[in-house]
Design a protein around this nucleic acid. Structure first.
Length: 567
RNA sequence: CGGGGUGUGGCACAGUUGGCUAGCGCGCCUGAUUUGGGAUCAGGAGGUCCUCGGUUCAAGUCCGAGCACCCCGACCA
């Protein structure tokens, strides 16, 4: 592409609402523009990167006998009523009516459509297993779109679905996809982690997330060198628990005026936060549930909601607490607490002579003991893993890092096949439900994540695999005919060798050209100026490392094919 | 949906207690001088000041309603 013919529009300033680096750079490099909240236009430069991700996914999927198809985005209500999700999907589902007032939605995902298709096309065990996938624009009316294309209302997703005869077959398909995904993200040149994940609303019992690591990632990951890795929403960890050999002492009421937080009271009483029982009140469906956890720890609300099988769990407001318990938050404790339910984290089990609120303003209890002073409630692991905790598998310290979820794989089971009647006739003459898996990659999110992971103060740094243009040619003086002709010939030569090349033929000052190419993140930048005419050596800069090499035109191609392996 | 905030050329912003022709920077166009890391000078184009209604001699500015967008929380690839 000749720069003068291109639609690449770079800017110095990003839109003021761009919060994160990838969003800013995608705007500045002219990759995307916003049409409405959470809805983006992909301009040619950005679209090329998107297409590169798509091509890698397609190649790796096809290698393993997955077959691409293309399903409708517009889907009739009846299908979603069959699965029950017309009701439960809620406001995130974009609903609309046609001219006959028939109801439709724009697909946020495609389990319904694909399962319906398979239900009518698959009839025998001989048809299984099969894995189908597509690239589709998905519509999710997110409550709060943000971070550019990272969380958009309309986005490109690769979704795949596997259909198997048996549960163990489904596990094989799952493992197969695990491998494919690993190959995909490796091919993209990205650093990533595979973590155990919460299977969330889609359901199922087997789930991993693929996380592109980035300091600014939204998800927190706990990982161990032994291979255990989990989203902290799910992570199980060993904490510094120990049986306390102390004798149980008599309960004691102490005056603690205005000391509400664990920090304040522990300082006031000169006691370690680990001796405290923190009492938190959660509300679900009008029921007040007290959750007890050791004073130095936090509750993992995802675990809690799962354990309670709760949909709308939230922390009670201080006003609700006051109305229900006639006591301010900060002075609550498990003794004689009139909660609808009391739940204990494992961290409270071994506490002896603990300290907690006395359910009376400005008072706390000392020497509170489980069994004697409050009843042994249900014990759950609802602990939020934190640095310092150890791996439950091998006991080593867990490492914490952040990542961006770009892929998610689920073993679904028969949830949808039962609902949509996807059955096959087995070799024993029995009709059985097909066993499903579903697998997603946020294609547009991969592009943003790649930038979030690879950038510097000058701009984007593309990996070779994802770069919209692999090579940039900067002609510093387009008015110098000799120089321009050589540049142009080089451009044509590299294009003929099937490289995607961006040729800067603009009559601009050098600074503008260099800065634009750095911003655009072109991996290999070749500069031709006076120095070239003197030395006949091309100046080749590697964007990622800043290294500069000098090669003749004849040496160029083998040099590029070598160096690109490490980019 | 709850809490907070913003709407003024393509981008980023200023605009005072209402006052005259609505301004600055970046970007864009023309010309000249420049040309190895975002040049300088001169000239120029580009605005329903979010919309509707109200107050007023006079509204970007005050009042009301609506719309859009952004930030903090639950969702998710």
């Amino acid at each position: 592409m000749r720069y003068t013919k291109s639609f690449i529009k770079t800017t110095k300033q990003a839109q003021s609402d761009a919060e994160i680096i990838s969003h800013k750079l995608m705007y500045r490099a002219g990759m995307i523009r916003k049409l409405a909240s959470g809805i983006y236009e992909w301009l040619p430069f950005g679209y090329k990167a998107l297409k590169n991700v798509e091509a890698i996914i397609r190649r790796e999927m096809n290698k393993k006998e997955c077959q691409e198809l293309f399903l409708p985005a517009l889907q009739p209500k009846e299908l979603w009523e069959k699965s029950g999700r017309w009701e439960i999907y809620g406001k995130e589902l974009v609903r609309l009516n046609d001219r006959h007032e028939r109801e439709f939605c724009l697909g946020p995902t495609h389990e319904e459509v694909i399962t319906d298709l398979v239900a009518s096309e698959v009839s025998s065990y001989r048809d299984l297993p099969v894995t189908l996938y597509q690239f589709q624009t998905k519509f999710r009316d997110e409550i709060r779109p943000r971070f550019g294309v990272m969380r958009a209302r309309e986005f490109l997703m690769k979704d795949a679905y596997s259909f198997d005869r048996t549960d163990s077959g489904a596990e094989t398909s799952y493992k197969n996809m695990h491998e494919i995904y690993t190959n995909i993200f490796k091919s993209c040149g990205l650093e990533f982690k595979i973590v155990e994940a919460d299977s969330g609303a889609i359901g199922g019992n087997f789930s991993h997330e693929f996380m592109v690591t980035a300091k600014t990632g939204e998800s927190e990951i706990a990982a161990c060198e032994c291979g255990y890795a989990a989203n902290t929403e799910k992570a199980v960890s060993k904490f510094d628990d120990a049986k306390n050999p102390e004798e149980t002492k008599n309960l004691e009421l102490v005056h603690t005026p205005n000391k509400k937080t664990i920090d304040e009271i522990s300082e006031f009483l000169n006691e370690n936060a680990k001796k405290f029982i923190k009492t938190l009140i959660y509300v679900e469906n009008g029921k007040y549930c007290a959750v007890l956890i050791r004073g130095d720890r936090e509750v993992n609300e995802f675990k809690l909601a799962n354990k309670l099988n709760a949909k709308d769990l939230r922390l009670a407001t201080s006003q609700e607490v006051f109305e229900k318990f006639a006591c301010e938050t900060g002075f609550l404790g498990p003794k004689d607490l009139p909660a609808d339910k009391i739940i204990c984290d494992e961290s409270v089990k071994n506490l002896k002579n603990a300290i907690s609120g006395a359910n009376k303003k400005d008072f706390h209890y000392k020497n509170l003991n489980l069994g004697r002073d409050f009843s042994s409630a249900e014990f759950f692991d609802i602990l939020l893993a934190k640095p310092g905790d150890s791996c439950v598998k091998c006991g080593k310290k867990l490492e914490f890092s952040r990542g961006i979820e770009v892929g998610h794989i689920f073993k679904l089971g028969t949830k949808y096949s039962k609902a949509m009647n996807a059955e096959y006739l087995d070799d024993d003459g029995q009709r059985k439900s097909v066993v499903m898996g579903c697998y997603g990659i946020g294609v547009s999110r991969v592009v943003a994540a790649a930038i979030e992971q690879n950038n510097d103060e000058k701009g984007v740094i593309w990996t070779w695999a994802l770069a919209p243009y692999k090579i940039g040619i900067i002609c510093l003086d387009v008015k110098n005919q000799e120089l321009f002709e050589i540049s142009e010939k080089l451009y044509e030569k590299l294009q003929n060798s099937n490289y995607d090349v961006l040729f800067d033929d603009r009559d601009e000052r050098p600074g503008i050209k260099f800065n634009d190419f750095d911003l655009l993140g072109i991996p290999v930048i070749i500069t031709l100026g006076k120095k070239f005419l003197e030395s006949k050596n091309l100046e080749i800069k590697i964007r990622k490392t800043g290294e500069v090499f000098y090669k003749t035109i004849d040496e160029l191609q083998s040099f590029i094919s070598d160096i690109s392996k490490n980019l």
